[in-house]
Amino acid sequence: MNIYAIRAIYKFEMARTARTLMQSILAPVLSTTLYFVVFGSAIGSRIDEVGGVSYGAFIVPGLVMLSLLTQSVTNAAFGIYFPKFTGTIFEHLSAPVSFLEIVIAYVGAAATKSVILGVIILATATLFVPLRIEHPLWMVTFLVLTAVTFSMFGFIIGIWADGFEKLQIVPLLIITPLTFLGGSFYSIDMLPPFWQKVTLFNPVVYLISGFRWSFYGIADVSVTISLIMTALFLIVCLAAIWWIFKTGWRLKS
């Protein structure tokens, strides 16, 4: 294992985060705060409790997930896309590093940033709503697992993208709608029966449901299924990255 390489890339990525603190931390915190104000306080005060939890508190896990997913994908995608764009990727390709080491470093850095962000958003939420976390250990597990999985997904997007537009398309057109429709702002059983079934094809439902369960002990789907689905997605992403580095798809000619 080339530990020095993992450390070098990780450090590089974290330094990049530090340089873009406004964009990478402050902007998502601000937008989440706006959601709290609009949905949590203004509209939320007119909505009944959901499963014994006030609406403002109910949407907290969903909002954290919303930021976690979009930021993980965007951040990891940008991290690997940029060396491709500037041409510095030649150094990664010519270095004695395995695909796993590159993934650990890039995904590790992107996930670290997402988790920090998630924690900051949670802290911000406590300013607006009373928060309780019934299963803190599971909360952390879901947080980390989701950050890692979607950073991997973002890493794939970054390799796939051959322009800045493609880099934006997936987070904007896929991740955001799936998260909004994945139960960030409502419980699935608020939907008509047909749409409840359709929603089950949305992988984000399982993440948000599991994550919310760790807070309030209420879930749309069973926690075990949530965990299995997340792990499954993680394995699929890992396999895809393994294939990418094996064939050099979009990396080598």
């Binding site: 020095y4 390489a5 070098a8 890339i9 590089f12 041409g87 510095t88 030649f90 010519s94 004695p96």
Partner: peptide, 30 residues
């Protein structure tokens, strides 16, 4: 192997010291 490519592909915002330290690490040298 050390490779100096034809294109001037470098990071922009890193310092000279940071970028050479990065390369050394990437190649697994302490």
């Amino acid at each position: 192997i050390g490779l100096v490519p034809q294109e001037l592909s470098t990071d922009a915002f890193e310092t000279v010291w940071a970028t050479v330290s990065f390369s050394r690490g990437l190649f697994g040298k302490k």
